[in-house]
Design a protein around this nucleic acid. Structure first.
Length: 543
RNA sequence: GCGGGUGUAGCUCAAUGGUAGAGCAAUAGCCUUCCAAGCUGAAGACGAGGGUUCGAUUCCCUUCACCCGCUCCA
């Protein structure tokens, strides 16, 4: 599939627009047009319905260890800045970077290290990105090259001390960049913040500095105790949240795939530590199935378990649900959702402070004085089980999905081209979106075959009746074939046409988007028939 | 952030240092009895800013956006 055609269709029919377009656009931001808004709403509502309001609290679904509860939450985008310090985002997302004017490469200031060396009165800080013996060898090698010496002259170089961080160096004119041939090519360190910074309060002083959330998850963790204390849930249970998140991506690209403002659909599922591997597998499979059920059924969708090396320091299992987007190189997949086993990392972080791995356990990271690097809330977020009389910190399974990415994947998967016969029976190119009926922005279109003989009046009555239950669209302009084509292009599953026989026998035709099949339905049965078709029940073909 | 490429109507494409043109789409109407037909009407563009010039869509500079590669992506 040609991505350009989809992008063009999205703009032409009002699914997606570039943000601030009349001012030249803004990189990494996208607006949803009238139809895109409906589509994305449907994606989010399907998720909410399937995960939360439609979930049966009383019985264990297939693959689940036991029955569980699901509740919702809507937390704020701006939260206490300490949350991001304890969660680890502040340290991970907040770096100083240096650029090399010569090699055009960029490095993290804290990851470049090097050694001071002197030769014939010249003193240079030779850098490397490697540590340990490798770094020592590399700096030795590069110093020889810089001064035009051979290996046997190595002892003529006067080294000063061990490998140290670039952060200890003030004058960059004497620094030889990791990929440079001459010293002095590195820029001053520049602050690089992947979180959007803002200021709370009318005075924009640093004491009011805060961040737009880079994920919705933390809002759930910090409300864990509130939810437990207020909503009669007991472990195991999940808290779901849908909402905007913000990341200052360095290279937003690939349509809406990597946007700076995006929407997430996240669940934090709290369970007993001994049961957590079973719950992890349940959620991994459940979430994969959700995409399949809504139409991403082909080989372009896959479930991929992370390798051990790929796991975050706190995770004991992570899987990605990925889709082979058409804009990616063949064989590459883009992440739609990550399902992570996060252990007790998050709740403990917000109790004790930012955690780091030490051997097999997580401990509070400390500063030079032995105090916590980022202090936690100090609140007890453990859970007391009334039945077993056990107190513990629940483990967390986190299925974290991107609403915009899912929407984009559904669009890509739905895009179809085929040939249908025109009025003379000659094949004509057709573009249509084979969207799942639950996702389709418009559920049905109602047409009078021609704009006379009382057909519009009948069609309008059907339209008004259906409108009470479904998002339907009325159109009486031009040839009916054109109207069909327009609806196909935006994925409307059914077109209902009032024709000659309608006026005498009270039936109308239903036309199926994918097969072009038509069958007759009584006017008074339209609502029920449409509901049936949208539920995916067998089409009642009678003509 | 770097390098290369591209910016003309919703889309596809013209032309031009001196009034920017077409096809398709969209739109209003006529016609039309099942898959973008036809006729008529009206509407619609040089990404933005600056410079050179009597005059710039065209030449120059800057900027913004998009595409490709690098970099980045807890």
């Amino acid at each position: 599939m040609d991505m350009d055609k989809l992008v063009s269709l999205c703009k032409r029919r009002g699914f997606l627009f570039q943000s601030s377009e009349i001012y030249g656009g803004l990189n990494g931001f996208w607006d949803y047009g009238p139809l895109g808004t409906e589509l994305k709403r449907n994606v989010k509502e399907a998720w909410w319905r399937d995960m939360v309001t439609g979930h049966d609290d009383l019985a264990a679904p297939p693959g689940a260890p036991e029955a569980f509860q699901m509740v919702g939450l809507d937390s704020t985008i701006i939260m206490h800045p300490q949350i991001w310090k304890c969660s680890g985002h502040y340290d991970l997302f907040h770096d100083f970077m240096v650029d090399c004017r010569e090699s055009k490469k960029r490095y993290r200031h804290d990851q470049v290290r090097g050694r001071w060396v002197a030769y014939q009165g010249k003193r240079v800080f030779v850098t490397t990105q490697s540590g340990g013996d490798e770094g020592v060898a590399e700096t030795a090698q590069r110093a020889l090259k810089l001064f035009g010496l051979r290996g046997k002259d190595a002892e003529r170089l006067a080294w000063e001390g061990e490998l140290v961080s670039l952060m200890t160096v003030a004058d960059f004119a004497q620094v030889l960049g990791p990929d440079a041939r001459e010293p002095g090519t590195l820029t001053e360190p520049r602050e690089f913040n992947l979180m959007f910074k803002t200021y709370v309060g009318a005075l924009s002083g640093e004491e009011g500095a805060a961040f737009l959330r880079p994920e919705t998850a933390q809002g759930i963790f910090v409300n864990f105790k509130n939810v437990v204390d207020s909503s009669r849930v007991s472990v195991p249970f999940g808290i779901a949240q849908v909402g905007k998140s913000f990341r200052n991506e360095i290279t937003p690209r690939n349509f809406t795939f990597r946007s700076r403002e995006f929407e997430q659909m996240e669940i934090e599922f709290f369970c007993h530590p001994t049961q957590s591997p079973d719950w992890y597998r349940f959620w991994r499979d459940r979430r994969y199935r959700w995409y399949v059920e809504l139409g991403l059924a082909g080989e372009r969708l896959r479930l991929r378990d992370h390798d051990k090396e790929e796991l975050s320091h706190y995770s004991c299992g992570t899987a990605d649900i990925e889709y082979a987007f058409p804009f990616l190189p063949p064989g590459e997949f883009g992440e739609l959702e990550g399902i992570a086993h996060r252990g007790d990392f998050d709740l403990r972080s917000h109790m004790e402070g930012k955690l780091v791995r030490q051997g097999d356990s997580l401990v509070v990271e400390t500063d030079a004085e032995g105090k916590p690097r980022h202090k936690g809330s100090g609140k007890d977020l453990s859970y007391y089980d009334d039945v077993t009389r056990e107190r513990y910190i629940p483990h967390v399974i986190e299925p974290s999905a991107g609403a915009d990415r899912a929407t984009l994947a559904f669009l890509c998967e739905a895009y179809q081209e085929d040939k249908v016969p025109d009025e003379h029976g000659n094949p004509r190119e057709r573009v249509f979106l084979r969207l799942h009926p639950r996702l389709a922005p418009i559920k049905a279109a109602v047409f009078p075959l021609v704009k006379k003989d009382g057909m519009p009046e009948v069609a309008q009555n059907i339209y008004r009746d259906l409108k009470q239950q479904f998002n339907v669209y009325y159109d009486e302009k031009g040839a009916v074939g054109r109207r069909y084509a327009r609806q196909d292009e935006v994925g409307t599953p059914i077109c209902i046409t009032v024709d000659g026989p309608s006026l005498t026998d009270g039936t109308v035709t239903f036309r199926d988007r994918d097969t072009l099949r038509q069958w007759r339905v009584k006017v008074e049965d339209c609502r029920e028939e449409l509901a049936k078709v949208l539920r995916g029940e067998q089409l009642a073909i009678s003509s």
